[in-house]
Each structure stands twice: as C-alpha cells, then as structure tokens.
Design a protein around this nucleic acid. Structure first.
Lengths: 207, 207
DNA sequence: GACTTTCCTTGACACTTGTCAAGCAGACCG
DNA sequence: CGGTCTGCTTGACAAGTGTCAAGGAAAGTC
C-alpha cells in the first residue's frame, strides 16, 4: 500500500478519496477482527484509528456500507494465497506439504481475520443484506480450494472423487475446527490440522 | 447465586422456578434463532413472549447467564438426535441412508436453531466467557458423530481412517455449507448434502 | 382474618449506538 | 486578497441497551 500519502503525489484527486476509504477499511478490519461484528461500533473503529468518528460517516454513508466495503477489501487481499504453492509444487506430495504448511501459516498469522470471516458469514444467515457479498467470497474461496485439489490430482495422475463444493466444505470444516481450537489457546491445533489435511487429501482422489 | 434461597424447605418435586427459567429459555431460543445473538436484546425476548422485560432479569442475573443457560438447554434437547438411527440400522447402507435422511430433516426443521449454534460458536472466538459452554457442546456433538461413524464402520466390518475430531470437522463443514445454502433459499441444498454424505462416509473407512 | 414470601410490572438510570448538522481549518483558484 | 470547496471536528439527537429498584399482586402460611 502507498503510505507516502503526502502531497508529492500528483496522481488523480479521485484516488485520495479511495485511499482514505481503504485506510478506514484497514482500521475497521483490525477492530472487527479483534472485537467481532457484534461488538464493533463505528466509534470504536474511529477510536482505534487516527480518525474521529465523524470521518467514518463522511466516507461511508452508513455502517452497512462500511462493512460491505471491508468485506470486499479483505477478499481482494487473501484470495490468491495458495496460488504460489500450486504453481511451485512439482509433485503431489510436495503440493500437499506446501498446502498444509500454508494452512498452518494462515491459521497462525491471520486468525483474527478468519474468525471475522466466519463471523460475517454466519451473520449473513440472519442479515440478508450481507448475503450477496458473503456468497461471492465463499465462491471465490471454493475456487481457490478447487485449484489446489485439481492440481493435486493432476500431479498424482488421478481424479478427484468430489466436486468443488464438497471439497471446500470438507476443508473448511477442518480449518474452522482448528481455528476454534487455536483461538482458544490450543497450539497443537496447528499440527492437528496439518495431520488431518495430509490424511484427507489422498482420500479425495479416485484410486 | 444464592437466589434459589432455601429450596430445601418445601421440597417441591418440580421446582417452579426452574420451570419458568425453561419457559424463558424456550422463548429466548426462539428469538435468538430468528434474530441471531447480536441483534437479540432482553426486551426483544420479552416482547416476543408472554413476559415482561423485568421477568427476564428476575430469573436471570444478567444477559450472559441467560444466554449460557439457553445454550445448555438447547444442547440437552438435540444431542441424542441420531441415536435411534444408529440403534435401528441393521446394515451399513441402512445406517448411511438413515443418517443422511436425519441430517436432511435437521436441516429442514431446525435451521434456525443451527444457525444460532454456529453464531454462538463463532462468538465464542471473540467472547471468552462463552467458550466453556461452547466447547462442551462441541465435544458432545463430536461424540455423537463418532457414535454414528464407528457403528457404521462396525456394520461394514471395517475401520475408520480418521479420529473423532476429524470426522466431526468434515461432516460439520458439509452441514454448515448446506445450512448456509438452505437459509439463503436453496432447496437443493438438502439433496446436495445427502449426496455428499453418501460420498464421504465410505471414504472414511479403511479399505 | 393478617402476615410473609414469591412473583411480576412499571418506570427509571446510565450508557452506547448510528446518524447527522453546524462550523472550522486549510488548500485551491481567481 | 476574497471566495469556494474539500476534509474533518465537534457536539448534539433519538433510539435502544442492560440493569435495577420500588412497589403492587398473588399465593401460601399462621
């Protein structure tokens, strides 16, 4: 991100507006990740940033617009996380190892963001207005997982037994369980997750 | 705390106090299932019941005590849901069919309760005070799933390839995905779930 | 009957929330 | 220099929140 915000930048004035929005989204995401959707107020977001609560309302019409903007902003940041692993792996086992390691890394370093994601996804079951954004991200994640699995199958010279949806559901279940444990302080969740993924993926290939 | 005073004196077999608490929990659960944890206030719970908002505070010290009581009350109601299926099945295929059918039934008839469960479980990642109750239920659900899977393996004369935790994580992932779709209006999620479960369980048995 | 305990209603409190309007500082433009 | 526009601060508003206390109603006890 371009942190050299001051003056020098002869770029379009339009960008400045968007840049502020992104800064606010960044702040908001940090707060949301820490407190969760329910307990996060606009004032709290402002307090934990360098802005006042009026600014938030200046850049976003209402709370909902801010949240949805954040969700989309977040998605753009995380959706290609496993692409390198897929591209770099030369064998099926290598891919599996890389994928599991990346999952661990995600769990360790992005726990707050991911519990927020699960929070928002769950909220979308109650708040219809969140549904569209959530569905979109969910589909993107599903495709991300599918890229991993189908490449894994390819490297193994075999075929997946499941479709993209089931594959995503299964892995997401394991990850969510691990996240729950990890957030609760169970460090072993990292290893458990890796083991489970190493166990699962081979099962998803037709013999 | 000591609000139950000296319950010893009259030794009424059925404590009227507890009965009211259960009625309130029932009302609260209905409201929570509809609105979600974040948007449910004590007054809203009272409004949607035959009680006034003061009564809630008379029977529960604070909001948190009510929520936790509800969570436990809910658990007691749903945790033996698959026991009949396990007991009645004579073959592995029969068990699989019965289990999938019961999952569908759960999805169809208890969607509100389950989205509430996922809501609370996610909240527990932010609110430590919810964690104990949630962990307890999660373990109970894991055991429930394990009873199904291990009996399934037994009937098939084979061994499960996963432990209880992984099995629960996988199935929970599929169920949650189906719930998300179903709540959003996708009726096909019922069939999809059944198909996925029919596909998954055989994979979980050692060849 | 009167008295006590239990149950519930009502209204209030202190506080937080989203929202918005009035106004101010500074840049930009003539 | 004055004027205008953008970005931001501040303070206010109404609505909603959890909590609680004072007191009435009902039921049970003597």
């Amino acid at each position: 991100m371009a942190t050299s915000t001051t003056t020098r930048d002869r770029a379009r004035p339009v960008d400045k507006h968007d840049e502020r929005r992104n800064q606010l989204a960044e702040s908001a995401l940090a707060t949301l990740g820490e407190l969760g959707y329910a307990r996060t107020s606009l004032r709290e977001i402002a307090n934990r940033s360098d802005f006042t609560h009026g600014v938030v309302h200046y850049y976003f019409r209402d709370k909902f617009e801010l949240i949805v903007y954040c969700v989309r902003y977040y998605k753009a940041r995380c959706v290609r996380r496993y692409d390198d692993v897929v591209a770099d792996a030369g064998t099926a086992d290598e891919l599996l190892d890389g994928f599991a390691a990346k999952l661990q890394e995600t769990l360790r370093e992005e726990a707050a963001m991911h519990r927020l994601w699960y929070d928002l996804r769950t909220q979308s079951m109650f708040e219809e207005s969140l549904r569209e954004a959530v569905t979109m991200i969910d589909r993107t994640l599903e495709e991300m997982i599918w890229r991993v699995l189908s490449r894994y199958a390819e490297l193994a010279g075999r075929e997946p037994v499941t479709g993209p949806a089931a594959a995503y559901g299964l892995l997401d279940g394991l990850f969510q369980q691990a996240l729950l444990g990890y957030v609760a302080g169970d460090e072993a969740a990292l290893e458990t997750l890796s083991g489970q993924v190493h166990g699962l993926l081979p099962l998803l290939l037709r013999p």
